Amino acid sequence: MTRRDFSGPGDLRAMQDLCSRTWSPASRFHPGQLAWSRYYRPVDPVVLEDGEAIGLWTEEGRVVGFGWAEAPDWLELQVDPARPEVAAEVLEWFEEWSDAEEQSVLAVEGDAPVEGALAEAGFSARLDLPYFTHHLLDLDSLRPVPDLPGYAFRPVRPHEAAARADVHVRAWSDIAPSQVDAASYGRLMQAWPYRADLDWVAVDAAGAMVASALVWLDPGTGVGLVEPVGCTPEHRGRGLAGAVTLAALHALRQAGARLAQVTPRGDEAYPGPRRLYRGLGFEPTARVLTWTRSIA
């Protein structure tokens, strides 16, 4: 087993392969989440940003674990359940690379190899911090798309990167400034496993995009990830976010998927998305908790 540093899109694809072949309802990542996390903002596809690092552990040509330090104080990781010892190596690598005195890691509750390595490295699960909850929906029980007068639902067209980016920005910028732009969305549309037929928007009577839902289908597992969903402020309260998500999920089922996954906040400080998805039939499964440690 060897470790190497991230060197471009081929390594992202290898990380996604790990996520696909080991996916379960308790997995940290779906391949689509990695694509979104890498390309939602303008980036060099080969070179990581300052203050960011990715390490990959490989065995016989396949990735068996990775650590993604999105910042010196924040790590994401996933390891092959068949190679649980890699989790400790990822944390050792992160400690050597990071100079942050306070560090955080997200881990799925019940992921014994990762939780054990975190505890051994001095991290503690923080039940007092916001957390996320994986939710699953059997697409055989998918509800119909409601009729909302004055609106229509359709997939994005390949030439619409700028308009698609704009509706995302308008939906999210009242929460925090969005880094999505036309260039980054165009690159995202070229990334595996993006499919334009699973990227849906709601349009108003004038044809303007006012809500959106992006779904990522992993053909290896037949599981689609909903990430992200948004509605522009002036059109909220009319059921558009749920309706456009259902439209995208119907397209997902037609594409051959069997399950859909989404991971909204699970704590009571931000209940809106959780209520939306449970209202569509999603059922909660595993929680994703923040673990922290201090290095003085």
Rank of each mutant, 00 (worst) to 15 (best):
R143H: 05
A119W: 12
H135A: 06
R265Q: 11
P72W: 07
A53N: 05
Y40M: 07
V215E: 14
D174I: 05
A286N: 06
E101R: 15
A107R: 14
D199T: 06
G8A: 12
R195V: 04
V201M: 02
F282W: 08
L259F: 08
A69W: 08
S178F: 06
P144M: 07
D218T: 03
G186N: 04
E89R: 15
G67M: 08
T245C: 06
G150V: 15
A213V: 09
D267G: 14
A243H: 13
P219E: 14
T245I: 06
L225Q: 07
S20V: 02
D147T: 06
L12S: 05
A269R: 14
E92N: 12
D197T: 09
A71V: 07
G116P: 03
G272E: 08
T285W: 14
P273Q: 09
P113V: 14
V114E: 02
L289V: 02
L48Q: 02
R274D: 09
D166Y: 00
T58K: 15
A205V: 09
A257K: 06
S24N: 05
L12F: 08
L137E: 03
R157S: 15
A112K: 15
V86P: 10
P45I: 12
C19H: 11
A269S: 15
D17N: 03
F153V: 01
D204G: 04
G122A: 03
A248R: 01
A163N: 04
H168E: 00
T22R: 13
L129T: 13
E49S: 10
D166G: 00
S20A: 10
R28N: 09
S27T: 07
R293S: 11
A125P: 11
H159G: 04
P113H: 12
E227D: 14
W172Y: 15
V90W: 09
A208C: 05
F132T: 01
R62M: 11
L188D: 01
R157I: 01
P155C: 14
A26L: 04
G220C: 00
V180K: 01
R265F: 14
D166E: 12
R164D: 00
W216G: 05
P81G: 05
S104F: 10
G256P: 08
E102P: 05
H168D: 01
Q78H: 15
H168G: 00
A247S: 13
T58D: 13
A211K: 10
T290L: 04
L75S: 07
V47M: 09
L280K: 07
F66H: 09
L289C: 01
A71D: 13
P193G: 10
W68M: 02
T58W: 15
R62F: 10
V105H: 12
D50W: 06
D181F: 03
V215H: 10
W23E: 11
A152H: 05
A196S: 12
P45Q: 07
V215Q: 11
G242E: 02
V215M: 00
G230V: 04
E109I: 05
H135V: 09
R13L: 13
G242W: 02
P130R: 00
E59N: 11
V90I: 15
S294N: 08
G110M: 04
P228G: 05
V90Q: 13
F94R: 12
P177T: 02
E76N: 15
A165M: 02
V169W: 00
T285K: 13
V156C: 02
A176S: 05
L188F: 04
C231M: 01
G32H: 14
A243N: 03
D166M: 03
R143W: 03
